[in-house]
Nucleic acid binder design. Structure first.
Lengths: 174, 174
DNA sequence: TACCGCATGTAAACGGTTACATGATTAC
DNA sequence: GTAATCATGTAACCGTTTACATGCGGTA
């Protein structure tokens, strides 16, 4: 049901920024480091083929000498529509870090207000999680479990700090 | 190749703490919140059956009236051996957050020195990643990409802070 | 009345990785 | 001479989710 994240949508999202080849997409994701572990070619290329089949993207084949041709994919209007539908519904239920990050990366497509709304939604979610776990860490007797919970709390707090400072910066620039 | 993480090993690890049922395991993982998204019953129960088949765990069936019997699983010596083998080799290559967290949760099984070594390995990895990305965020022109990179840097920094303070605490208590 | 917690289980579907194939060019 | 980068692709495999089945007791 409404899978929170899939490379299908991520690819579609990246293509709203600019046309890219499969290899380009892979390199881009790898460049983001550990935040999002980039998919293997074994899933990347077949996904691109499927998007093409569903007419959500088009290809332009650029031949090269002594190398396989570069295949530059561009998103179509149908693709944009599909992406928007997914974006709209994932805003409501999407709690996953990956979904949040994808929308963040695609911030260029969002209006100023939409970006702020996105960060504020995340803030609400993180704050709720924090409140839910804050007591558990102190109560916990087992060292390992306590360490893990404390780690989680530290990360959640750090995220709140980042979200707040980013939100402040954005509102100043508005 | 040497999959960095699997519920098989996680379950085995949890059973070194105390015997548990499948339902117990699920509840425990759910209690940890968003850190590790707990596996569904559809993978949990079959995994337990496979572990039993491989004699890495044993079961004790405790009947209940009007409810399915509780099946309490305990780890065997063979199971402990398998877990240790995995633990040893994952210490070398395991870069994933999940693998780190699992070992953290299982800290009770580790010696004081092994726990410190584990945290220090993580520290090295996070620091390396930080160094690798720190320039990229400033150079980046696209707002979304820059935001995502800055987010990653903020999280990595926060993790270093937590690791350092935890390491300090542990060395004082040694 | 309807949903949540307890407690187990199965089968189909899905999404992804791993490993393979091809092959030139540049760097250590 | 060995590895990495560029650049695409396929097929087998695997772990996991989703959806189903069963059924009682407590709660909103």
């Amino acid at each position: 049901m409404a899978s929170a994240f899939s490379i299908r949508h991520f690819i579609l999202g990246l293509l709203t920024r600019e046309p890219m080849s499969g290899y380009d997409i892979k390199r881009f994701l790898k460049g983001l480091g550990w935040l999002i572990d980039s998919p293997s070619f074994g899933s990347l290329y077949p996904t691109l083929h499927a998007l093409l089949r569903d007419a959500l993207v088009t290809v332009e084949v650029i031949p090269q000498q002594d190398k396989p041709p570069r295949k530059i994919y561009s998103i179509t209007n149908a693709g944009r529509k599909t992406l928007r539908k997914w974006t709209d519904r994932s805003g409501v239920s999407g709690t996953s870090l990956k979904a949040f990050l994808m929308r963040l990366i695609l911030a260029g497509n969002l209006s100023h207000d939409d970006l702020i709304a996105h960060l504020e939604r995340r803030r609400t979610q993180v704050a709720a999680h924090l409140e839910q776990t804050v007591g558990a860490a102190e109560r916990e007797a087992d060292m390992g479990e306590r360490l893990a919970l404390e780690y989680g709390l530290a990360m959640a707090n750090a995220e709140l700090v980042w979200l707040d400072s980013t939100l402040t910066q954005l509102s100043h620039r508005s």
